[in-house]
């Protein structure tokens, strides 16, 4: 039951994009088209879950016994960069169609703060292995949900008559703000 609550809390109540402000760059940058938003969301969810699992193991079984917790930032970044590289190579070999859909977004994920943000939250909250993975999966799906809804909104904004000064980023930010108000409604849920 606790795990379900943790999952829902990461996905909806504390939505990574709209309440925690993690992963704003891809959220604004790759949400012009619905298809690319879906690919980006899936890629982020996948890498997020995988890197949370690996980071947990490296932190617990290497950094803590060696008393080198202060190196966690460097360790996590190197883990995420390496994982993204491995996933990219694996996809290229095993599934060229998936690679062409997701491939261009993978390198961008290395500097996506949602990934390392989730890993740092797992560490700060002292989650165990299962909790870390569930939290990361929830966070990733929350990101997917937010970016897909937002891409739908932006496709309609593109076709409307926006004042010159608001075109592009400003109107996207205001739209994200309105979406964030809607997500505030979930805050009493858990």
């Amino acid at each position: 039951m606790n795990l379900i609550l943790l999952f829902l809390s990461a996905a909806i109540v504390n939505n990574f994009v709209l309440t925690r402000f993690l992963g704003i760059c891809p959220f604004i940058g790759v949400s012009r088209k619905l298809e690319s938003a879906v690919s980006m969301g899936i890629a982020v969810t996948f890498v997020l879950t995988l890197s949370s699992a690996v980071s947990y193991m490296v932190y617990t079984f290497f950094l803590v016994p060696l008393n080198m917790q202060y190196l966690h930032i460097i360790a996590f970044i190197v883990i995420i960069a390496a994982l993204v590289q491995v996933v990219e190579m694996f996809l290229k070999k095993s599934s060229p169609t998936l690679y062409s859909a997701m491939g261009v977004y993978l390198p961008l994920i290395t500097t996506n703060c949602a990934i390392i943000g989730a890993v740092l939250i797992n560490m700060n909250e002292g989650f165990n292995f299962i909790e870390s993975v569930v939290h990361a999966a929830g966070a990733g799906l929350g990101f997917l949900l937010a970016i897909v809804i937002f891409a739908g909104l932006r496709e309609r904004i593109e076709r409307s008559d926006v004042p010159q000064a608001f075109r592009g980023f400003p109107i996207a930010l205001v739209a994200a703000g309105l979406m964030s108000i809607a997500f505030l409604g979930f805050s009493g849920l858990i």
Partner: peptide, 14 residues
Amino acid sequence: LPPGAFITLGVLMA
């Protein structure tokens, strides 16, 4: 609250 951040930055940028 979080929505205020988005809206303020959007309006300021414009």
